[in-house]
């Protein structure tokens, strides 16, 4: 079973992603902060991480950088899912090692399609 980790301090967003991806083949994991997300990623080694940027404590960019720096976790596909939609923000995300950049608000259907494509690869 494929694992997807959602790291976002907004409960509503985590819930939205969870409901969107609620299919049998996927295991959805939650983390409400950067530190928690980092820890869960290392523990459960998800296939995909949906990572918010602005979070109290360790932000998403830093989490992404640490994961991509770590040989054990660098293979994890990281999708930045954030409300920071400016070009400079995207550059920062990709510079940190993000594989995909999704700007909020997003269409649950589009996110679903994207996840499916990644997993099918």
């Amino acid at each position: 079973m494929k694992k997807i980790l959602i790291v976002d301090d907004e409960k509503k967003v985590r819930r939205l992603v969870e409901v969107t991806l609620s299919i049998d083949e996927l295991e959805i994991l939650h983390a409400s902060s950067g530190e928690e997300g980092l820890m869960k990623a290392r523990e459960s080694m998800p296939d995909i991480i949906l990572l918010d940027v602005m979070m109290p404590g360790l932000d998403g960019i830093e989490v992404c950088r640490l994961l991509k720096k770590d040989p054990a976790t660098k293979h994890i596909y990281i999708i930045m899912l954030t409300a920071k939609g400016q070009q400079a923000d995207k550059k920062k995300g990709f510079a940190a090692g993000a594989d995909e950049y999704f700007v909020k608000p997003f269409s649950p259907m589009n996110l679903m399609d994207k996840i499916n494509k990644i997993l099918n690869k």
Binding site: K12, V13, L16, T20, A83, P105, F106, P108, M109
Partner: peptide, 21 residues
Amino acid sequence: LGITSHELRTPLTTLLGYSEL
């Protein structure tokens, strides 16, 4: 503007996402 955009996008995410669901 960045913050406002972010602040607007966060509730909009909820509105658009859940309304689509």
